[in-house]
Amino acid sequence: MTNEDLQNIIIGLGTDLEFTTEGSEFLNVIVPKEQLHSICSQLKSHPELKFDYAFCITGMDWVPALGVIYHLNSTELKHEIVVKVMVEDRENPTLDSVHDIWQTADFHELEIFDFFGIKFNNHPKLRRIFLTPEWEGFPLRKDYVDEANMIIK
């Protein structure tokens, strides 16, 4: 299915969706964070989309917004899209967990929480998976400073 066809289907799944293919080989869908869970579950269940394989989930710090990028693939229909979601609040960023849609999100959300501090609602057990529980700050954020361990040239 071409990107235009995908766009025509997905545009009906929610409101205020933005589409772009600029600077990327995939169709990018930017989703408002309130609609993230409902759109993701429709992306998986829609008979013409069937995005059942989330092969990459990336945390992002577009200063000032934080966000998550979901690379999705349909193992049956062989098409791929990228879903992006942003959250402006840097103090207490919160998104909905999609672990009930793609179970791989369980671990990837832990990783994103660990490094970007994005909290996920309804996640079964949100914890620091790589760093120690008492670690301060979120290292992959652009404004993270650690003078002892980071060498900036």
């Binding site: 092969f55 992002m60 990837h108």
Partner: peptide, 28 residues
């Protein structure tokens, strides 16, 4: 499947690199 995601802003350094490592997903 190892995935490499590079987000570039046009500089000599990448803005963000993500390695989608097979082990992490398999462990889950």
């Amino acid at each position: 499947e190892l995935g490499v995601y590079i987000n570039s802003t046009g500089n000599k350094n990448p803005y963000r690199v993500k390695f989608r490592s097979p082990g992490f997903s398999n462990l889950s």
